[in-house]
Amino acid sequence: MADVKTGSKVTVVALVENEPGVLNRIASLFRRRAFNIDSLTVGRTHKPHISRMTIRVEAGPEYARKIATNLQKLVNVIDVRIIDNEPHVERDLALIKVRNDDADSRNTITEICDRYPARIVDVGPKVAIIEIVGTEAIIEEFIEQVQPTGIVEMIRTGVVSMGRGTRIHDTNFINRRTLLEAAAKARNGNGRIV
């Protein structure tokens, strides 16, 4: 794993079958092959039987290829793409709870939020929750800005990415079980019913 410590990050997008244990298989693969996950997000797509993962990994291009070929070997992984070299949109979301118990901090927070794609979503007498959505870099920068005011709690969703333009991840197939069942039932002679 020659180029693992390059400091650069790659973004892997994987379409996976929405079946129990898929996340486990991917996590196990990363651990087994000593791939270091920076962030991993998983969520449903518009097709109920397909989930989509965005995995950020600290790696150079050679290492990234290894990750992709190994992921592709998993039976439940439908498609894998390293997305960094194509135009893409990337978003990370953070909820940051900050100290908000004096006029100074309140002003500072409001002022910083104005300069970023951030908004205050909850305000209490002592703390406020800020929501920020943006690229990883912007969120890092924002965190640096609010740090001196006092962060008391924080959560990030991890990056999600999508390629721009018409090159799309193909989700256009039917769940295999449905297909097999239908095919077998449709053809009496073929789908032997005992």
Partner: peptide, 15 residues
Amino acid sequence: TEFIWPEDDVVLPGY
């Protein structure tokens, strides 16, 4: 259950 043997080829989109 009703035993239905799928005579058609296996369809595995990720394989």
